[in-house]
Design a protein around this nucleic acid. Structure first.
Length: 105
DNA sequence: GTACTGACGACAC
DNA sequence: CGTGTCGCCAGTA
């Protein structure tokens, strides 16, 4: 059967997010040509099995981690802290500073 | 097949 | 800031 091009594009995009930067679900969906499918991006990442995939660099549009506490939240935060990405007092990441801007890489 | 859920987001209050 | 509604669609039951 043919590969799922949308899923394939998302995974490719996630792999392109540079170290120390984060992208949002909606941003990835838009870059993949499907701006309304942010939710599917989450599904794709949840079912992704590639351990090398930098899934932790994907957060929601508010600059916060979408995973529930105790179900990956802490893990993702630690992975991001290891990349020197900062969180404010509300566990929020400043997208103006750490958001991925493809044009600049 | 139907119904509900969810790692989302835009928009309206 | 919050809360609710709607659109989206792959999984799951």
């Amino acid at each position: 059967m043919p590969p799922d091009s949308f899923r394939d594009r998302i995974l490719t995009l996630v792999r392109q997010i540079p170290y120390g930067r984060v992208a949002t679900y909606g941003q990835l969906a838009a870059l993949a040509g499907a701006p309304r499918r942010a939710r599917q991006v989450g599904h794709i990442l949840r079912h992704a099995e590639d351990p090398m995939l930098p899934w932790h660099r994907v957060i929601n549009h508010r600059g916060r981690i979408s995973l529930p506490h105790g179900a990956g939240y802490e893990v993702q935060k630690q992975l991001l802290l290891q990349e020197h990405i900062e969180f404010d007092a509300d566990d929020c990441i400043d997208l103006d500073r750490f958001g991925w801007r493809p044009a600049f890489d």
